[in-house]
């Protein structure tokens, strides 16, 4: 039987030292057994390496930054779709998800572009500023946290939480503080970069473990692979990791997906304490950059997500290989100036 061929648009082509997930997603799509693909890269910057990886990306179009608004984005998709006839869209950045979630219905109904994304409510509720409440609502342990709008609020909260504590940006960055002075210093730096509020969170001792998975939107976990980072960069990004055999962690994940009816891909970040308790630190509403490990251990979750979106039959994965590692590497490509010129000037390559 011949396989269908889907044209799939993917963002997150920034395979740099703190990589977006796009290239990992594309590798997984290329290895899908149930369909063939034509890959359309969507880039924001002219130097995103994926633009120039012609063995992985068939054609790239620049897209407007999220701040340009939804109408501008929709018009760009009308243009791209008029040439490429897209079947599926794979957004991979947190910052662009709001626009894509809002536009997903129009993209599907008016342009025939499908996607599988969390609902707006799920997307908002799992935001780190709401995560403590989200955990309480769904019976998941989440470190106690409070939103802070001014430096003078810190001593009182520190009194409540104790030291050390974690100061976190709204979208990015987290720093540990061992005194009120240090917490205030972190508050100033993080609020200047990421805006308000800043989150002050209880510090949980333990080791970080992460799960990459998919929820079907009806409470069923379609796939999940737990991983522990073995080596991290100075930005805290995984440079190497290993798949884990952790039935308790899978149960916590299964329960969370059942309780929240999560729809789409996710990365869960947990702290596992010495007493084997799991505290949910963050829910990323997309595949992580290390998602190719799921392919390596026998769960092509990326392929599964496309099949879910395209309305094909999807059965949950029930096994994966434990003790499989990923090790990331950097690679210098040699690129002609004419290619850089083309993406920079006409926004297509």
């Amino acid at each position: 039987m011949s396989k269908p061929k889907y044209t799939i648009a993917v963002t997150g082509l920034n395979a740099i030292d703190s990589p977006g997930p796009g290239i990992a997603v594309i590798r997984a799509l290329k290895e899908a057994e149930s369909f063939d693909v034509r890959i359309i890269g969507l880039s924001y910057e002219s130097l995103e390496p994926g633009i120039y990886m012609h063995d992985l990306v068939d054609k790239t179009y620049q897209v407007p930054y999220p701040s340009a608004g939804q109408q501008v984005l929709f018009e760009r998709f009308q243009y791209i779709n008029s040439i490429e006839n897209l079947d599926f869209l794979f957004p991979n950045f947190d910052a662009e998800l709001f626009n894509f979630i809002t536009l997903s219905k129009r993209l599907e109904e008016e342009l025939g572009i499908k996607s599988v994304l969390p609902t707006q409510e799920q997307f908002d509720a799992r935001h780190k500023v709401n995560l403590f409440e989200y955990g309480k609502e769904h019976g998941i342990k989440v470190p106690f946290a409070k939103m802070v709008y001014g430096m003078n609020e810190i001593p009182a909260i520190a009194n409540e939480i104790g030291f050390p504590l974690v100061v976190k940006g709204k979208f990015y960055d987290a720093k540990i503080a061992y005194s009120s002075d240090e917490a205030m210093k972190h508050f100033n730096k993080i609020s200047a970069e990421w805006g308000l509020p800043v989150l002050v969170q209880e510090f949980v001792h333990g080791s970080e473990v992460n799960v990459c998975g998919i929820g079907d939107g009806n409470g069923v976990l379609l796939g999940a692979v737990p991983m522990r980072k073995l080596y991290i960069t100075d930005k805290g990004k995984a440079w190497a990791g290993v798949s884990l055999d952790d039935e308790n962690l899978l149960k916590v994940t299964r329960d969370l997906v059942a309780a929240t009816k999560w729809r789409g891909p996710f990365e869960l970040e947990f702290m596992k304490t010495n007493e084997d308790e799991y505290y949910l630190i963050e829910i990323n509403p997309r595949f992580p950059a290390w998602c190719y490990l799921t392919v390596g251990v026998g769960q092509n979750q990326i392929e599964k997500l496309v099949n879910l979106g395209m309305g094909n039959d999807v059965e949950p994965f029930d096994t994966y290989e434990v003790g499989k590692m990923f090790i990331r590497y950097s690679y210098d490509m040699i690129v002609n100036m004419s290619e850089f010129e083309q993406i920079s000037t006409i926004g297509e390559l």
Binding site: S207, V209, R228, L230, V242, L244, D245, D246
Partner: peptide, 18 residues
């Protein structure tokens, strides 16, 4: 029971990744 031990004396704990 799930600790993997190779002939060369390499131990892997699949629950923790150590």
């Amino acid at each position: 029971k799930n600790i993997a031990i190779s002939d060369s004396g390499f131990l892997f704990n699949p629950s923790t990744g150590d």
